[in-house]
Design a protein around this nucleic acid. Structure first.
Lengths: 113, 113
DNA sequence: CGTGTAAGGAATTCTGACACG
DNA sequence: CGTGTAAGGAATTCTGACACG
């Protein structure tokens, strides 16, 4: 529930395919990387690899740019979102530990008195 | 429920990446295509594009080949599986139509008498 | 600031074929 | 039958830079 781990995050798509999927030019995609909005991986041959998640991010970026939002602002916004997500993750984790102790007790550690 | 439509079936991965993901050689992957075991799409430049689903199929194929199963037999088996799936889909569809008529009735079409 | 483009090189992929077994 | 390989070409991708605005 907290981490797809599935296909969505696997960096396997080359830039040409990303162009087709997003309608953006290579130049644009590379520029958004330069501005720290996306973070493709690199294969041996130095080729960029993107995930489906990256593609979704790119579509959002494209919309914002069209609306006149600057890359710097987009970056700030994304940073904020990431922090919120982390906060939520930490909170969930904390709840999980509380449940482990009180909620879903396991009977194996009872003192025999 | 009957058709992911999601990332798993999108043909976006180039053969080099498929090699990395499956551990197979380009030669092997192309040969399995020649034997009609997988069906990549082609991009403008004639480059093959595979889906995550194709990759899973390739892993299964690799195992079977290792076990000495011939491509022809694998093909027969896959054909059979596909037909089973289609049969199941038809059956589900039929049930859906029955439900539409009797199960989940909508009240909008009552005669006023 | 965001994007287009020409430039030259490097890595990727393609096809058809010969080889072994 | 399944796979490796050398061959030559075509398409892809990369980087750094100049340009416009």
């Amino acid at each position: 529930m907290t981490g797809d781990s599935s296909y969505k995050d696997k960096k396997v798509i080359t830039i040409g395919t990303v162009c087709e999927l997003t309608g953006l030019s290579e130049r644009q995609i590379r520029y958004y990387e330069e501005r720290q909005l996306i973070f493709p991986e690199r294969s041996k041959g130095k080729n960029r690899k993107y995930s489906f998640n990256d593609i979704e991010t790119l579509m959002k970026i494209a919309n914002l740019i069209e609306d006149g939002v600057q890359t710097y602002e987009i970056r700030q916004e994304m940073k904020r979102e990431k922090q919120d997500a982390e906060r939520a993750a930490r909170e969930e984790m904390r709840q999980g530990q509380i449940n482990a102790r009180f909620g879903i007790q396991n009977n194996t550690h009872r003192y025999k008195r």
